[in-house]
Design a protein around this nucleic acid. Sequence first.
DNA 1: CCGAAAGTTGACGTTCACGTAATCGAAACG
DNA 2: CGTTTCGATTACGTGAACGTCAACTTTCGG
Lengths: 132, 132
Amino acid sequence: MSDELMTIRQMCDAFGVTPRTLRFYEARELIFPQRRGQHRLYDRRDRARLTLILRGKRFGFSLEQIRQLLELYEPGSRNETQIAATITIARERLADMERQYAELREAIADLAEQINDAETRLSDAIHSKRSG
Amino acid sequence: MSDELMTIRQMCDAFGVTPRTLRFYEARELIFPQRRGQHRLYDRRDRARLTLILRGKRFGFSLEQIRQLLELYEPGSRNETQIAATITIARERLADMERQYAELREAIADLAEQINDAETRLSDAIHSKRSG
DNA sequence: CCGAAAGTTGACGTTCACGTAATCGAAACG
DNA sequence: CGTTTCGATTACGTGAACGTCAACTTTCGG
């Protein structure tokens, strides 16, 4: 069932990454595809993790930070100490994201204003050219 | 006037960067401090640019993208074509930021939920231990 | 005036996140 | 049954953004 298990190429097409990237994430222990013989096979869980990886990257997180966050998404058979540690890390990332969210709002407003100013300068320049 | 002109060390202390970083940004043409003899001196404009550089970095922009954006903040003596090009680039960055802003909102909600779930698992684990 | 402190210019090193090429085994296909 | 094709492994290369170290001036406090 191609809906359940995907080859590395299908994954690459689906997510817009290269085989190298998927093998690299695996080497860094971010995903753990099964093997059929020598070949890798990716299931729903792997796809979900990859989605989170790519999202994390868009927010500027390192692969290591993302790896730590992914533990949160594992109903994992780990102990209390590890769960607590993961939660602590996740709270820090969450705080990062909330700060970034707030700052992004400001930055968007700033940039929009600068674009407006530049547009004014531009139309002024065109106008003075036409009438000069 | 130390409020007007700052040495490289004062800049580093103020912005939390290293001298190497400031010289690197200068080599990449992101800032242009004056020289008193051999030494660099940074003015208000340089500080404003550095603020924008560090902000841009926090949003995951490359130094080259930031350099292009900085042109927008220069009341610059450039021609219409260049202003128009800068505006086009800036609009793209603005679109990037708006997408990021929207996605960040979702991601924050997701992560908060996962943290909640993990906290539940954690307290459950503690409870089962106490009563077991 | 002079020695420590601060700053300068190379130039090479480093980390992250992959890219790229070589070589190999397995698998699909006419 | 040979040959493309897909995938695996290994290893070296790369670009971005600095770190680090050496060798020199320059400047400032005592």
